[in-house]
């Protein structure tokens, strides 16, 4: 079967309001796939993975494609494309980490079609924006029949219930936050991260008050490098400490072999990526 590339049969619905979308999904929770940009969904349907009776597009739902600056946070509609986020001045200024990661994702075509909502909701280890949002403490707004609720992106996969869908991502803006992002793939661009590391550091000078380290390319749901974070907290970020944290992150990460790389090599990469991302956070503008 895996030679076939045609789409299977399905019914397409495109509700014109949030309410309509919520009630359709509520009526057919198990028979519906939500479609945002479709860059993952259509491909998987062609491979006959998770095919359902309905495809409900969010394209016609108004208001999901806006980026708004609110007090203490940036609100990004779930239908905002990856490229729009990478280019948005408010994101670049207030959430540099997110903008950097979006700019490194996929290809221009994918960035222009794919959305942040699709990336966050796809529940795949390959989704590169998820660790970035976790490092940033971002939250997701879910819409359902009973209205909407907000959960942390980190908890999203555990939290989300049948009949709910993502409408918005809320990224807190924290003054004095330093960040670093490293992505390793065979190709510099146009490739999924074999390993990526996103770090956000709060603190003054070199002393770290709080640290969030999230990893990509590892087995779900161990995206956070908690022990590494603890190592950094309250201490001065010397090179030696960074290496110690990076080693802890690599040791704890649950990652398996893929068709090209062994698990040991990926652990090695995690160490290098975390340490580089931390160094980047400590002295921005300098790589590695």
């Amino acid at each position: 079967m895996y030679y076939y590339r045609r789409l299977p049969q399905f019914e397409y619905v495109a509700p014109g309001s949030l309410k309509e979308a919520a009630s359709f999904l509520q009526a057919h929770p198990r028979e519906t796939r939500v479609m945002a940009g479709g860059t993952i969904l259509l491909h998987r349907m062609k491979e006959r993975i998770g095919v359902k009776k309905y495809v409900m597009s969010l394209k016609a739902v108004p208001g999901l494609d806006a980026i708004d600056k609110a007090p203490g946070q940036v609100k990004i509609g779930s239908m905002v494309t990856i490229q729009t986020i990478a280019d948005a001045p408010v994101v670049r200024r207030q959430c540099g980490l997110l903008a950097a990661a979006c700019q490194m994702l996929g290809t221009p075509q994918i960035r222009s079609m794919g959305t942040i909502g699709g990336n966050v909701a796809c529940n795949l280890a390959t989704a590169e924006i998820v660790p970035v949002l976790i490092a940033l403490d971002a939250q997701a707004t879910l819409a359902g029949a009973k209205g909407s609720r907000t959960v942390s992106v980190e908890e999203l996969y555990r939290e989300v219930r049948d009949g709910e869908f993502v409408t918005e991502i809320l990224v807190p803006v924290k003054a004095g936050q330093a960040w670093g992002y490293e992505k390793w793939a065979m190709r510099k661009r146009f490739d999924y991260a074999t390993v990526s590391a996103a770090v956000a550091i709060a603190g003054t000078g070199r002393v770290c008050k709080d640290a969030k380290i999230a990893l990509g390319g590892v087995t779900l749901p161990t995206r956070r490098a908690r022990r590494a974070e603890e190592i950094l907290k309250g201490r001065s970020l010397t090179n030696r400490l960074i290496v110690e944290a990076a080693e802890a992150a690599a040791e704890d990460a649950r990652t398996g072999a893929d068709i090209h790389f062994t698990a040991e090599y990926k652990k090695e990469l995690i160490k290098v990526m975390v340490s580089r991302a931390l160094k980047q956070a400590v002295s921005p503008g300098k790589e590695g």
Partner: peptide, 11 residues
Amino acid sequence: YRTYKVPTANE
């Protein structure tokens, strides 16, 4: 093309 990594203009 995802698994067979042909270099692009970037490389």
